[in-house]
């Protein structure tokens, strides 16, 4: 388990800010008591607070930390122009939710699934909500001004970068660099495909690295829920 965790951290060191987060997590690992056995989830030795956030959500006045209280929440960071990874992960999360529903989990006990668009430049709240509801009507699609999304994403350990293609070659453009006009709307976003689980206190509790198997996620969620005091 620790090996997988270290692998994950190694992948993340490209972002210096994530390094700080990683260091905190690693420190936590050293004095951990034995976590309950899971198949794909990595349970944090100690759940971690996420900063105050306020995200735009179509159909409500907004999505904030208060909306995390009292229920388990899965977070996934992506963007609607995503051709491959996001549709797959949203499908996995929808499948997981359907399995829980089929198993007769009471509505109040169902986890919420939150898709955060890291591409507010192109993704508007209404479009994001329509997009995620295709996968499951319970899904929430949210975003915010770029800086706020970045802050929340970093606090959980999600990473991403914009990529532009010019003459068949990939260019990675930093946040402070000017984007050539012709390329403005053509970018792709490389991003981590990790799914984050927040507990009913609204704190980061576990992470699910790829690959994601809906049935294993259902079992892991049960193990996690039964091991906590929530």
């Amino acid at each position: 388990m620790k090996q997988r965790f270290n692998d994950l951290l190694r992948g993340g060191v490209v972002r210096s800010l994530i390094l700080v987060t990683g260091f905190i997590l690693l420190l936590g690992c050293e004095h951990s008591s034995e976590p309950p056995p899971t198949e794909g989830a990595i349970i944090l030795p100690e759940s971690r607070k996420v900063p105050q956030f306020e995200l735009l959500h179509h159909g409500s006045s907004g999505f904030t930390n208060t909306d995390l209280k009292g229920k388990w929440s899965f977070f996934f960071y992506g963007y609607t122009h995503c051709p491959d990874v996001c549709p797959t992960e949203l499908f996995n999360l929808a499948e997981m939710l359907r399995q829980l529903e089929t198993a007769g989990v009471a509505e109040a006990e169902l986890p919420q699934v939150v898709f955060v668009s890291v591409d507010p430049q192109r993704d508007l709240p209404e479009g994001i909500q329509r997009y995620v509801e295709f996968y499951h009507p319970r899904f929430k699609g949210v975003t915010a001004e770029q800086g706020r999304v970045d802050q929340l994403a970093r606090s959980m350990g999600a990473i991403y970068e914009k990529v532009y293609y010019m003459g068949g070659k990939a260019l990675v453009i930093g946040q402070d660099e000017t984007i050539p006009d012709a390329l403005k709307d053509t970018y792709l976003v490389n991003h981590s495909a990790t799914i984050f689980l927040l507990n009913p206190e609204g704190e980061l509790h576990a992470i699910f690295t790829t690959p994601h198997m809906p049935d294993a996620m259902v079992r892991d969620l049960k193990v996690i829920q039964q091991s906590g005091q929530f």
Partner: peptide, 9 residues
Amino acid sequence: ADGMMKMAQ
């Protein structure tokens, strides 16, 4: 790569 799913044209 680098902990991300990268799209390469």
